[in-house]
Design a protein around this nucleic acid. Structure first.
Lengths: 409, 409
DNA sequence: AATCTTTTGTAAAGAAAAATACATAAATTG
DNA sequence: CAATTTATGTATTTTTCTTTACAAAAGATT
């Protein structure tokens, strides 16, 4: 049998253990015993290998328990890294992240929308290569690449589906293209879904049923159902922006229909209404600026938008019965101005059972949540019990390559 | 080590194999090898034990494959049975089912709604005992008990939650009560969710994302998301009957709010409208009778109800992006009269991506779907990989008891 | 400081499962 | 009908994991 180096114990079979630690289902040796069902000898042996390879580390902290304190185990965040890109409507944000995940290098590219995918992916690849060079050999193994797109995505196939702002991307095989270039696993997901994943992983790890609503230029949502991201049959779940409320004065939506939530309450709709009232406004940021200046018209329109959004969220609550609702996106910076309208309608419309323990809260307001979500998505998948052995195999062979050239120092 | 009888091989460790067969993830020895990751020797040995104990059987059919045909394996449907009860608003339906599941004995009890749970559960227990006697020793092991209730249920805790038609049941520990009486696992679930499970298991086993809508006296829905029943944080998911559409003529709902879908389109609402138009009608069945007589007012109201329901289903489609929608409940007997209105609104309101591959279809129209769903739910849980060993342990010890009294023949 | 408790490591023996190699069964194909 | 193909069973050896038993580490308790 084919063994690595005499000095490093084999990682074979250590996948279960690594998976348990990475998913935080076990964080001490005792918990590993319980969770894996293996014997202490086996756990010790495999853990020793993981520690020796630097994939797992013991933290400084210990859990005091009356006897010898428990040593806490965690994934070694610097044993590898991830490349992620967030394709926005105006620019592309690239980042290299350790396994925390935390960004340690980044770059921004301009993005002209009607580009064909090949050109854009070329630019992204170059950016990634630069980040890769920056990471050098100190950052360990490149685990994979994860992309955030502002359109519906068929996650399994890694393709844009249906019409979207990314013209010409429909059905383009992104995974194949980037996979061939970098030789690592590639993941592609919709930005709102990734923001949802970020909120769940980062802020609400105990919450199994939550709804994230992004209110920015457009309106979209993502759901965690039973602890997992819920994508729907075509990856189009969570499209609450184009739910229609019919009325006499139903405004025309950019999707071509009348009365969509977006056409009433999204950033572009509010900007339209403000402009119509003689206050020239273009973007969702402009709207927020006006709100922060306490401009009455802006405050009024935003509160009204909150009610409209509350109405559709109330429908979603009746259907999904989430435990928490997180509101994010640019307009969420308006804080209570937006939230109060939402809360008003949700508590008015929904049955007490669904709202009894419901919290409605604002998301962490920073721009990189989709990037972090992309990293979480990738890491979750690579550390999954049925796939982690592939990761270990790559880690082993990378280690071998790194150690073999002993002729040249 | 403690062994059963010399003539029967031990079931120890055979759980994985049984679970794979029961869930239909493997139906031949070759598939078991692949799916379990075990060696052929081990699979053969464990399978031999399962066959010897009668828990699994080889079917007559074979799969021709160019060489020796594959023998198909399946759970032996008569190696055990299940007791299920469907508590309706007017009566209780009890059944004993084999593992197909198929009913082999049943009974009906009258049910006066304002009964306290103890009295009702007493009656059910007596009914179950009678069915148990009827099953005798020929039907194998009693696997468990499964209950269908017409109210929201917290599945994990097995309790009715929130206000409902079952007054006095709120937070009553049904699992504890029946578990103590029969000493077997007990499951409690909402009837619409169970009908949803039935449709998925029985008719659409390949569909991972589906929506079931029950249109009867009331309106409710259940969802399969990513292959699993989606219950929400309080078990209240799918409550589409009380989504409101505001309008000037919004009718009063029995929940106390105005403009709910139920108050516009449920059986009771249509009966109300027909009565108001001088056609005395009481129940959803009466409505259907009138529709079958092609009474114009009934046809018109039902078509209109279809549009209203279509409106709320369109919202649900935007949010959930299901692959299939199944319409069930008493009013579904109206067939196309109801469906056309639903389809009209769904295709009008939803984005093409979500409706591209969407089918909207009628459910199998028979009354026992909740009972079958209850059995599927129970069997799925008992055969789950992490629990199946408990079932095997029970099966072994039951076998021992059955064989021990050899002094008396 | 001595004792207790819980966590963790390790060696040796025993049990379980895999790999290997060989054998047989039951269809299809030419 | 013989050859081929795929499915399946079993004895033997080898590998892997568990069990058992003994120890040691490190803080809490008295």
């Amino acid at each position: 049998m084919h063994e690595g180096r005499r000095d490093l114990p084999s990682l074979e079979g250590a996948g279960d253990i690594l998976s348990l630690i990475a998913s935080r289902r076990a964080s001490s040796r005792a918990e590993l015993l319980r969770a894996s069902g293996l014997s202490r000898v086996t756990v010790t042996q495999r853990l020793t290998a993981l520690l020796a390879h630097g994939l797992v580390r013991e933290t400084e902290e210990t859990l005091r328990s009356g006897g010898r304190p428990t040593r806490i185990l965690e994934v070694n965040a610097s044993s590898g890294f991830v490349l992620a890109a967030n394709i926005g409507e105006t620019h592309i944000h690239l980042a290299a992240m350790d396994l925390s995940p935390a960004i340690f290098a980044q770059a921004t590219l301009p993005f002209a929308l009607p580009n064909r995918p090949e050109a854009t992916l070329d630019a992204i690849s170059e950016g990634f290569s630069a980040l890769l060079a920056e990471a050098g050999n100190e950052r360990g193994l490149l685990f994979g690449i994860s992309l955030s797109l502002p359109t519906p995505v068929d996650f399994k196939r890694g393709r844009v589906v249906g019409p979207s702002v990314l013209q010409g991307w429909d059905e383009f095989d992104i995974i194949g293209w980037l996979g061939a270039r970098f030789g690592v696993p590639v993941f592609v997901e919709n930005d709102v879904n990734l923001m949802t994943i970020f909120e769940q992983k980062h802020r609400l790890p105990a919450e199994d049923d939550m709804l994230f609503v992004k209110v920015g230029t457009g309106i979209g949502s993502g759901m965690i159902a039973g602890g997992r991201l819920f994508r729907g049959a075509q990856g189009a779940a969570g499209d609450i922006g184009h739910i229609q409320f019919v009325s006499n004065d139903a405004p025309l939506c950019r999707c071509g229909k009348f009365g969509c939530v977006e056409a009433r309450a999204a950033g572009w709709a509010i900007a339209r209404d403000l402009t119509q009232r003689g206050i020239p406004t273009e973007t969702a940021r402009d709207v927020i600026d006006l709100v922060e200046q306490r401009k009455p018209e802006a405050l009024m329109l935003l509160r009204e938008a909150g009610r409209t959004i509350g109405e559709v969220i109330a429908d979603a609550v009746s259907i999904l019965n989430p435990g928490v609702i997180v509101i994010g996106g640019t307009l969420a910076r308006a804080g209570e101005t937006l939230l109060s309208g939402i809360r008003e309608l949700v508590y008015q419309r929904c049955l007490p059972l669904a709202t009894r323990d419901l919290t409605i809260t604002l998301s962490s307001v920073h721009d990189d949540t989709a990037l972090y979500g992309a990293a979480y998505l990738l890491l979750d998948d690579l550390y999954a019990p049925d796939k982690v052995h592939q990761l270990l195999a790559r880690a082993s062979s990378a280690e071998q390559k790194r150690r073999r050239p002993k002729t040249r120092r």
